[in-house]
């Protein structure tokens, strides 16, 4: 981009202070800006809104339509399925797979995000120290993302294989007993979690690192002059400044993890039995994982996931409002 352009006005120190959420009230000025820029605001936003309308409205409508009619393969092709209201939803809630799938989804999502975010943030802070080779190593962290999921997930199932996997070979070498990672009901969710955390680390690292780079170095310098220790600096300055970026990273992580299915599908197919079946896996099983697709139930499960995501998004939007009101 146009790296030569230097932002006009505002000394670095001021920028830093303005970026900190604890900055004092500027409301009256801000309100003037709001009035005068309403048209401009929508001008900038319009392309994306049109884009959303063009490309997402139809699939979303389709997913809702599928879920409130009872589609068979016949009516999927001919398009005249009878209206079923919430019958499909009632059916999936009553299904014995629902409870374990919901529980697995909750465990999968929260454990994945906790580890991905903590490790991603830790690595971002680490790489931010800009040591020799840090740029190269950071770039290498992205390599897992270049691999098609088919390949990375297959590699993990290879490594975690009970008999010929390298992980069990390692466990045995250090005197532990091997684990049936993918084939025992106790471990299968853990196995897909490990692979998913691995895949999610680069995402968190990149965003948090960019967030750190957005904090002017002067802030850290000022803090170290004040005699703050590294740990204090992180919790009192770095972390609060990263809050908007952290919030969106967590929210996006949540949304993406909720819909993860390829990794689990390739590694365990949701099994053994339902031990690693999440809602996303179940939805896929119902539609394309079977020879006789049940599109309506699959869409209903998919919509339940959308509702869960919306609830968390509302929490995010509220939190963000509060943050901005400060």
């Amino acid at each position: 981009m146009r790296s030569a352009v230097r932002p006009r006005g505002g000394q670095p120190r001021d920028e830093a202070a303005a970026a900190a959420p604890s900055r004092g009230p500027r409301r009256s000025r801000r309100e003037r800006v709001i009035r005068s820029t309403q048209w401009t605001a929508w001008g900038f936003l319009a392309p994306v809104v049109a884009y959303l309308g063009l490309f997402y409205a139809y699939p979303l409508y389709r997913n809702i339509d599928l879920s409130i009619r009872s589609y068979t393969v016949t009516s999927f092709v001919s398009g005249n399925a009878p209206f079923a209201g919430f019958a499909n939803y009632r059916a999936i809630f009553a299904n014995p797979t629902f409870a374990p799938a919901l529980l697995n989804t909750a465990v999968f999502v929260f454990v994945s995000i906790a580890f991905q975010f903590a490790i991603g943030l830790g690595l971002a802070v680490f790489f931010h120290r800009n040591f020799r080779l840090s740029g190269l190593l950071r770039a290498l962290f992205l390599v897992p993302w270049l691999l098609p999921l088919l390949v990375s997930a297959s590699t993990w199932s290879w490594m975690l294989n009970s008999d010929s996997g390298v992980v069990n070979a390692f466990l045995q070498a250090v005197g532990l007993s091997p684990i049936d990672w993918l084939t025992s009901p106790t471990w299968s969710l853990g196995a897909v979690l490990i692979a998913n955390i691995w895949i999610g680390i680069p995402f968190n690292l990149v965003i948090m690192y960019s967030g750190l780079q957005g904090i002017p170095p002067d802030v850290f310098e000022a803090a170290s002059i004040d005699g703050a220790s590294g740990w204090q600096r992180f919790w009192r300055i770095t972390f609060p400044l990263l809050r908007p970026v952290s919030a969106i990273t967590l929210l996006l992580g949540f949304v993406y993890t909720l819909k993860v299915f390829d990794i689990i599908w390739i590694m365990t197919r949701g099994g053994p039995a339902t031990s690693s079946t999440t809602l996303a896996i179940w939805s896929y099983q119902l539609s394309f994982g079977s020879l006789l697709p049940d599109f309506s139930s699959a869409a209903a499960v998919g919509n339940v996931l959308i509702v869960i995501a919306v609830v968390f998004a509302l929490v995010y939007v509220r939190a963000r409002h509060r943050l901005e009101a400060l």
Partner: peptide, 14 residues
């Protein structure tokens, strides 16, 4: 909110 909902639509449906 819509942007978040948009990301939740299953890829196969898209």
């Amino acid at each position: 909110l819509l942007l978040l909902v948009a990301q939740m639509i299953p890829a196969i449906v898209m």
